[in-house]
């Protein structure tokens, strides 16, 4: 039996007395992608936060690599990449310095070279010496994606990864996900619009009022993101 890279077992989250996630069950194995769609406020970001252990659960369990998320070892945290709404970048550091810093935290070999490689990969070579504060929203989002990927994680949780990205940026993200799945990793994406993942058959879910349900239908070509169709 293969161990799921990420798993939610009857996971529930309440903010005060208000239930935000109710009895969420999810399992993502190697080489698989899951897309969770939902309206604004449906609980997508809360689910990502809960799976990462950033917020407390009112019931249930979140597991990564077979371990309870609260007891995840440092070595295993290195195997996870996360993008959230906020970029988690230091605004007074340059794009290169930000990536070098996160490369060092992830104990990457040759952090400078890794940072340069990921800057080029995300099309940020020309702005490498610009402070994150001076980057456009789309550029900051690309840098945040590079930050999440720099440790070559096996599992990546993308919270609205295509927000603010142009066609080219979205295409690069598509390639990154494909490569991740090809090397046996797993990706969990959230979006308020349906997505398809090129070269993979993602498990599609909908979050409705905090409950995770199988998506009713595959996304139509009209609603699918541009990078998926090219």
């Amino acid at each position: 039996m293969t161990t799921a890279l990420v798993e939610a077992l009857s996971l529930s989250v309440m903010f005060g007395l208000r239930p935000v996630l109710t009895e969420v069950n999810l399992k993502l194995e190697r080489g698989r992608a899951a897309v969770i769609t939902g309206a604004n406020g449906a609980g997508k970001s809360t689910l990502v936060h809960a799976l990462c252990g950033l917020i407390g659960l009112s019931a249930g369990q979140a597991r990564m690599f077979g371990q309870d998320i609260r007891r995840l070892r440092a070595d295993d945290r290195r195997r996870v990449g996360v993008t959230l709404h906020r970029s988690m970048l230091y605004l007074n550091l340059t794009a290169r310095e930000n990536l070098e810093f996160y490369a060092k935290l992830n104990a990457c070999q040759k952090p400078s070279e890794q940072a340069a490689r990921w800057l080029e990969r995300l099309g940020l070579g020309a702005v490498a010496e610009q402070r994150a504060r001076d980057l456009s929203r789309g550029m900051e989002q690309r840098l945040a994606l590079a930050r999440a990927m720099i440790g070559e994680p096996e599992l990546v949780l993308f919270d609205e990864p295509f927000a603010s990205l142009d066609r080219q940026g979205a295409a690069v993200v598509g390639e990154l996900i494909q490569e991740l799945l090809a090397r046996g990793g797993a990706a969990l994406l959230t979006s308020h619009e349906p997505l398809t993942v090129k070269g993979a058959e993602p498990e599609n879910y909908q979050l409705v009022s905090g409950r995770l349900l199988p998506a009713a239908a595959q996304p139509s070509r009209r609603t699918a993101w541009r990078w998926m169709l090219t």
């Binding site: 950033l54 440092a74 290195r78 959230l84 906020r86 988690m88 605004l91 935290l105 930050r147």
Partner: peptide, 15 residues
């Protein structure tokens, strides 16, 4: 706390 960098640190392998 600016730009939620503390979350970035909490997600990192650092103790």
């Amino acid at each position: 706390h600016e730009n939620d960098c503390l979350t970035g640190l909490r997600l990192s392998p650092l103790e």
